[in-house]
Computed example of a mutant assay.
Amino acid sequence: MKQNKLARIFENWVPKILSLLAAALLFYLYNVSKYDTRVLVIPLETIIPDALAPVNPLPGAVRITLKGESNVIYSIPESDISATVNLSSFSTPGTYRVPIAVEKKGIAMSANFLEYTIDPLDIEVQLDKKITKKVPVVPVFGSEIPENYEIINIQVQPAEVEIACPALLSDTILKLHTESITTSSQEGVYSYRAKLISPKSTVKIINNQNVMVLWEIKKIIVYKTFQDVPVTVQGLSDSLEINGDLATVTLKVSGLRYDIESLILESGSIKINLSDVIEPGVYSVAIETKLPPTIRVESILPSNITVRVIKKKVQ
C-alpha cells in the first residue's frame, strides 16, 4: 500500500516539479510587481590621508537605487544613507581601486528593501604626495571698461593664499584667480569681497576662501605736443598792421584719448588779441587759446610774444 502511495507521488514527477517552479515564479513576480524604484543621488565622502592628495578628480556623488514598497522607500530621508570611499589605509603614492561603502542609519536601517544598488561600485584614484605652498591672487574684472577709462591701484587682501595640491600639479599652479568682478563705468574707488576659484578640484584652498579686492577707476588722460604752431592775430585795427613775422609756439595739451587723437588745430585756435592796440608800437602780448572744453592746456611756449605794430601803408 505504501509503495502504491509513493508511486503515485512520484508518478509524472517532472510535470509536478515544473508546476511548482511555475507557481513559485508567479508568486515572486506578483510580489515584485508590488515594489517601486527610487533613485537617490548621495554625496560621496572621501577620506584621504594627510600626507597624500588625489591627482585625478573624484566623483562628488553616487547613485543609489532603492527597490521596495513605495510607502517604505519614499519614507527614507536621503540623510539616512551615506556613501564613503576610505583611502586612509594608503601611505605611499600610487594608483588604487577602492570600493564605495554604503552606510544606513535611522529609517533606512530598519526598512526592508527588496534590494539596493550603487553606481559606481568602486573608484580608481591616483594618490601623490601632498604639497602646500603660497600663491598670489589675481583679480578678474568681468565687465568691459568703458573707452577712455582704466582700472588702477588694484589691491588684494590678502595678496597670497595657501593651497594644497598633489606634487604632480604643484609646478603648474602659479596663481589663483577670483570670480568675475563687475566694475562700474564711473570714476571712483571700489571694493568687493570676491570668491577664490580653484583651477582644479584636486587643488584645495586653505583657510581663505574669499579675498577683499580694492581698485580705482579713472579716466585715461593722454598728452600731446604740437610744435611750430602759427599764431593768429585778432582785433587789430584796420589802420594798423604787424611788422615782420610772428613767432610760432609749442603747445602741450591733455585730455581723453579719443579727444586728443581727434584734435585738429584750426585757424584761430592759437591767437593774440590786439583789440586794445590803437597806435603803433612794440607790445608783449599773451597767447590765448580757443580749444574744445574737453581739452586742457598744459603749457604754451612762449606764453607771450612780442609784436611790432606799424601804421598800415596806403596802397
Rank of each mutant, 00 (worst) to 15 (best):
residue 36 D to K: 10
residue 118 I to Q: 03
residue 67 K to M: 10
residue 109 M to N: 11
residue 223 Y to L: 06
residue 285 V to N: 03
residue 288 E to K: 14
residue 302 P to A: 05
residue 264 I to E: 12
residue 237 S to M: 01
residue 284 S to I: 03
residue 300 I to K: 01
residue 8 R to P: 00
residue 30 Y to K: 00
residue 232 T to Y: 00
residue 234 Q to D: 02
residue 3 Q to M: 05
residue 102 V to H: 08
residue 56 N to S: 06
residue 190 Y to V: 06
residue 119 D to T: 12
residue 85 V to T: 05
residue 74 Y to V: 09
residue 193 R to I: 15
residue 136 P to I: 05
residue 185 S to M: 11
residue 315 Q to D: 14
residue 79 S to A: 14
residue 96 Y to A: 11
residue 72 V to Y: 07
residue 292 P to Q: 05
residue 45 E to V: 07
residue 279 E to Q: 15
residue 62 V to I: 13
residue 159 A to W: 07
residue 53 A to W: 01
residue 242 I to S: 04
residue 209 Q to K: 14
residue 101 A to V: 12
residue 132 T to G: 01
residue 128 D to E: 12
residue 286 A to W: 03
residue 92 T to Y: 11
residue 186 Q to M: 13
residue 166 P to T: 06
residue 42 I to C: 06
residue 97 R to T: 15
residue 7 A to G: 06
residue 82 S to G: 07
residue 60 G to V: 04
residue 12 N to R: 10
residue 274 L to H: 08
residue 4 N to I: 12
residue 34 K to W: 02
residue 154 I to A: 03
residue 160 E to V: 09
residue 27 F to Y: 13
residue 65 T to K: 14
residue 75 S to W: 00
residue 307 V to E: 04
residue 106 G to V: 06
residue 120 P to S: 09
residue 224 K to L: 03
residue 99 P to A: 05
residue 65 T to A: 08
residue 180 S to G: 09
residue 73 I to P: 03
residue 95 T to W: 02
residue 230 P to H: 11
residue 203 V to L: 12
residue 217 I to C: 08
residue 165 C to I: 10
residue 96 Y to M: 09
residue 243 N to A: 10
residue 114 L to F: 13
residue 195 K to N: 15
residue 234 Q to R: 09
residue 246 L to R: 06
residue 280 P to R: 13
residue 271 K to E: 08
residue 37 T to D: 00
residue 47 I to C: 09
residue 223 Y to P: 00
residue 213 V to T: 12
residue 160 E to G: 01
residue 58 L to M: 09
residue 71 N to M: 09
residue 97 R to M: 09
residue 282 V to E: 14
residue 259 D to N: 15
residue 278 I to W: 03
residue 236 L to C: 06
residue 273 N to W: 10
residue 238 D to A: 08
residue 225 T to C: 07
residue 128 D to T: 08
residue 307 V to Y: 03
residue 242 I to L: 13
residue 199 P to D: 10
residue 181 I to W: 03
residue 87 L to W: 05
residue 138 V to F: 11
residue 136 P to N: 07
residue 308 R to E: 14
residue 297 V to D: 02
residue 149 Y to W: 09
residue 149 Y to M: 15
residue 80 D to Y: 13
residue 226 F to D: 08
residue 94 G to C: 06
residue 170 S to P: 05
residue 270 I to E: 05
residue 61 A to G: 00
residue 125 V to L: 07
residue 85 V to L: 04
residue 306 T to M: 08
residue 92 T to N: 08
residue 42 I to K: 07
residue 35 Y to R: 05
residue 76 I to H: 00
residue 262 S to P: 02
residue 55 V to K: 04
residue 80 D to A: 15
residue 287 I to R: 02
residue 140 V to M: 12
residue 110 S to A: 11
residue 70 S to R: 14
residue 175 K to Y: 15
residue 83 A to M: 04
residue 165 C to W: 01
residue 205 I to D: 11
residue 103 E to L: 12
residue 144 E to P: 00
residue 26 L to D: 04
residue 244 G to A: 02
